[in-house]
Design a protein around this nucleic acid. Structure first.
Lengths: 394, 394
DNA sequence: TTCAGCATTGCAATCGATTAAATTCGACGC
DNA sequence: GCGTCGAATTTAATCGATTGCAATGCTGAA
């Protein structure tokens, strides 16, 4: 034991911090230290700090005041060990480097920010973890030791694994679309509605042959495709699979896909892209090929990344409410953690009771230049009219 | 206690996992469980798992094999409590919402990815924390309980506070520029060199009146400005402060600043932007005002965000090696954590011994369309020539 | 006066892993 | 045959906070 701790509390009352430095106020690091100062036992201090009704109110206030004066903070590790709880949520980024949606997609960072804010508001820490789809990332989700639950990105890579984890009762939620045979909770934007709105908009702008760029292996992209399909259907337009090009979430992939589409000699006058990054790549490829946007081809993206408004032409896109998304992910996970599902059921049967929860966030179509064909779409940008060149409206 | 743990180990030897589900292999959650299975004491198990030479090699191998068979993992919380170490690094995003560089800057996410990778490679967890500049985020940096050290973003907001923390011996490193009176360790790209290279490039392209967009309150921007100044000086060009516009790290702020510059009627033919996001905002404002890029005004950005190559015109910019940045931040911090500075010195004097370490990462100028004035800069984009319209080169 | 009843507070076990010190046990030298 | 040495292992204390139970002291009723 450290005997250096002074006994007489009276004289030792620490003076105000020395000016210009960050004071330490002695070394009140443990409950025992504080207990000594307060002249009570550690148990009482613990109870006081946790607002237990078992301690006298005056005592409690005295201890709390003492604690804050000395900047005392509980040792989270010890507390977590004792309570068998970590107050930590792990955000797992299952990122397939080859699939393109690396950490570069700005959208992801925004969502992460929303999650961080919500978690801290609810008193949880955020553990960030990158993992590769094939690896053993799931082991700790099944038996978490460093966290109470997980928020997972990368649904597409591991749908079956996620189902198995959910069947085993692991506490997690997933960002992404809702799949037909899905046993786990998830949160995602209204991908179907968004894709539909984007496509309808292009149709309203006069597009008749609209292509789709996205990777249907990603559930979110697949749902956007489904919306695209519905919009075509309701407008009585044919669905031409020749206008689909599988495209990963990267600019480069989008450029390749678009070039491919152009070279296929299939006529098209509109493009629905599964992300803004894809849309920008597509626009680049179109312009390089001498096709004007939106004159020859109108383009709609997805995500409304911060840059979408500042590129040229500015990007029509589907906005997702990322802050709401972060909040929903956290709240859904914590509701699962803090009120565990009926313990009597052997977890493996938990799935067949009812549908796992899925939160759908509303989306909003943001119309900008890349899709506008009303002729007067660029009052402040005479360049554009010129750039559209010889192309008439439809 | 859970009595369900079966005693007889023989018959209970868990069979292979039932197909289609994720097996649990009994409940080997603690060292004590494993010790029981192995027929030794917990101490021996602990030593075996930590490769202590004190245990017989055969015993060690047997225990390790048993542990991996049962997917046993140590309880990190307990270990950390005992060892008074957390094996965790906290990344603190000090973000002034009003300053614009929110979580939206794609650059930040990439850097974060690099940090995550390096930390996990070195066996550390990454705790992510957002904080507001004015708040009490620094308290836990001074006396960390949940982490061993911190990586801090947001130097500008809190330079003095950071100095005070460093004086008090807090374990952290900062991403940003090197400031004159800086007591803390930091990592940043070669802002001065980068700014200089960007400016030189514009001069080579024939620009003579070059503006600068950035917020000099941010050290990184200030250093880029310094490079800008040097490049002008070495070219014998005058430094005209009328061509500087304070600009925060957001597209919107860049649009405003650029409009302001245009309306000031100051002639200018080049712009150095402190970030790609700023550059894109500037290009947008220029085009809205009828000035062609790069024809009338050549523009250089900074960061080389993934989209820089896919916008129109594609963006000339200064690339930072973010992966190396992440690695450097982590390695510098861990070297400080794992070999603490001479304990005898009372920390407060530690600063005046020698300069705190600062890692400067090399930068590379990536030349794309937004600055090229060689006449043949868009072989594949005939549009551009049209778009420039009536404006001659220079 | 005595004692039940209540409000406070203290004691001690506990969470799970680590490690100094003590113990066991077999081999070996004299 | 006996003491010693050393390798291998066990025992028990420890990290810091929580909490069931016991203990304390005080009030008021019998």
């Amino acid at each position: 034991m450290t005997d250096r701790t002074q006994k007489g509390g009276g004289r030792g009352a620490p003076a105000d911090e020395p000016a210009g430095s960050i004071g330490r106020k002695g070394n009140v690091r443990t409950i025992a230290d504080l207990a000594r100062l307060a002249g009570v036992s550690g148990a009482t201090v613990s109870r006081a700090l946790n607002d237990s009704p078992l301690v006298n109110e005056r005592t409690r206030r005295r201890i709390q005041e003492l604690a804050s004066r000395h900047r005392f903070r509980l040792n989270a590790r010890a507390r977590q060990l004792r309570l068998r709880k970590t107050d930590t949520v792990c955000v797992i980024l299952l990122i397939d480097e080859e699939a393109g949606q690396g950490l570069s997609d700005p959208f992801l960072l925004e969502l992460l920010g929303g999650i961080a804010d919500r978690l801290s508001a609810r008193g949880y820490d955020l553990l960030l973890s990158r993992a590769e789809p094939g690896a053993d990332w799931w082991e700790e989700v099944l038996h978490p030791r460093r966290f109470d639950g997980a928020i997972i990105f990368g649904q597409a890579c591991e749908h079956r694994r996620l189902n198995a984890l959910a069947d085993a009762g692991a506490p997690f939620v997933v960002w992404g679309g809702r799949l037909p045979d899905q046993h786990y909770a998830s949160v995602g934007s209204d991908n179907l509605g968004g894709g539909q709105a984007a496509t309808r908009h292009l149709i309203e702008q006069g597009c008749r042959r609209i292509g789709f760029l996205g990777d249907l292996a990603f559930p979110e992209a697949a749902l956007r495709w489904e919306g695209y399909r519905l919009a075509l259907e309701e407008a009585g337009l044919p669905l031409d699979e020749a206008l689909y090009r599988p495209t990963r979430f990267s600019g480069e992939s989008a450029v390749r896909a678009t070039r491919d589409l152009i070279e296929s000699a299939q006529p098209f006058d509109g493009l629905v892209a599964a992300s803004d990054v894809i849309a920008l790549g597509a626009i680049r490829a179109l312009e390089q090929a001498g096709r004007a946007v939106p004159g020859d081809v109108a383009v709609v993206g997805y995500d409304d990344i911060p840059l979408a408004a500042y590129v040229h032409p500015s990007l029509t896109t589907v906005r997702q409410d990322v802050a709401a998304g972060g909040r929903a992910l956290v709240d859904l996970l914590l509701s699962r953690i803090e009120t565990p599902p009926a313990r009597t059921a052997p977890a493996s049967q938990q799935a067949d009771g009812q549908e796992p929860p899925h939160v759908i966030l509303p989306t909003r179509l943001i119309v900008r230049q890349s899709s506008r064909r009303d002729g007067a779409f660029t009052p402040r940008m005479p360049d554009d009219a010129d750039a559209s060149g010889p192309v008439g409206h439809d």
